[in-house]
Write a protein that binds this DNA or RNA. Sequence first.
DNA 1: ACTGGTTTAGTACCAGGTTCTAAGATGTAC
DNA 2: GTACATCTTAGAACCTGGTACTAAACCAGT
Lengths: 205, 205
Amino acid sequence: MRDIERLPKRQRQQQLVHIIEDNPFITDQELTRMLRVSIQTIRLDRMELGIPELRERLKLMAERTYDQVRSLPLHEVIGDIIDLQLDKSGISIFEISEEHVFSRTQIARGHHLFAQANSLAVAVINDEIALTASADIRFVRSVKLGEKCIAKAYVRSISGERSKAKVEVFSYVGEELVFQGHFIIFRSTTEIVSVEGGYSHEDRH
Amino acid sequence: MRDIERLPKRQRQQQLVHIIEDNPFITDQELTRMLRVSIQTIRLDRMELGIPELRERLKLMAERTYDQVRSLPLHEVIGDIIDLQLDKSGISIFEISEEHVFSRTQIARGHHLFAQANSLAVAVINDEIALTASADIRFVRSVKLGEKCIAKAYVRSISGERSKAKVEVFSYVGEELVFQGHFIIFRSTTEIVSVEGGYSHEDRH
DNA sequence: ACTGGTTTAGTACCAGGTTCTAAGATGTAC
DNA sequence: GTACATCTTAGAACCTGGTACTAAACCAGT
């Protein structure tokens, strides 16, 4: 029983893995048609490969969504705001987890740090609409998986209605400065003044 | 049969909606225990309220995850790279969809545009490791839901090994410039030189 | 006492499985 | 060839979490 000409099974199982990865919503019945083997074989294969049944797969996916939706306000403010003094200063905290890093180096991708700082800079402005006009940023040192990034924002100047505010943000891991940015935030208590050629780009959540 | 003292049913149904929203993984059996009514009542209530059975709920959630995972390469390069001439230039395209905008204003959040530009600036550098050291960016006009954002990156200067590259990125919607950024990318053909105090912050996917 | 919405009970049935037992098929080794 | 092992298929019993449908019981108002 050398592995000569005993590939079919392995091949089939590889295909099976591939098919299910590609379409987790497939039933064993449908798999029999695709792989041209009996349903028992499909089930044995799943056992061997540790692939759960359809319903379990869907449940796992649903749980993942649910957890994500619960724990990751990814599309809202990035990072948890723990202190906020409108028009003065704000602090937010953001923990770097798997989905924020390059898998090879475990270093956080820049846009997540930027997003945290940008969110905070926008949040700290006490106006109906606040949009980032421009930013000047600097990544001081790399942030690794598991590190907690604390961003502190300070409003440096506010001009009259329909004008800009300057906000400085410093992000730290422990005592160490890791990121620094100067944001110019366009602000307005009224509706968006003009869309064309404006600075407008961000508003509050 | 006025609505005097006929609330229990309505109340129960409200509770039911609430419980299921709060925990979509609950079975009818478990609901009977919570609401102290028979399983048939639970089922009648679900019918009336148009709440699908457990499995359907999980399936819907799973489908949502799946679509998101498919459409959002959020954790890899943001935007699809459609042209890339290493150390020279690159183009990527990124369509603004629901999850990228503020729901109230339909305006794209700044960090997504930044992420597209940043990803591209990093991708265009022909080195093993490329990390964003700093960036100077400007949001020229707001980008709305459904617009396709085309980012063009140009490498302006490259210095010797273990040094920096300057990359300019311009993002357009149609003919209109919407975003502009100057990136300084730290590059190295070798491993990360020094972690402490360095510029390092981004690498390639 | 009759009516009508509400609740409960019970049965048949279904999808998409698991678990187990057992029988063929297909080598392969000697 | 025959014995052994692996692989594949078949079949039946059982499970969960339901749907669909029928029917009875429970109020409450009038």
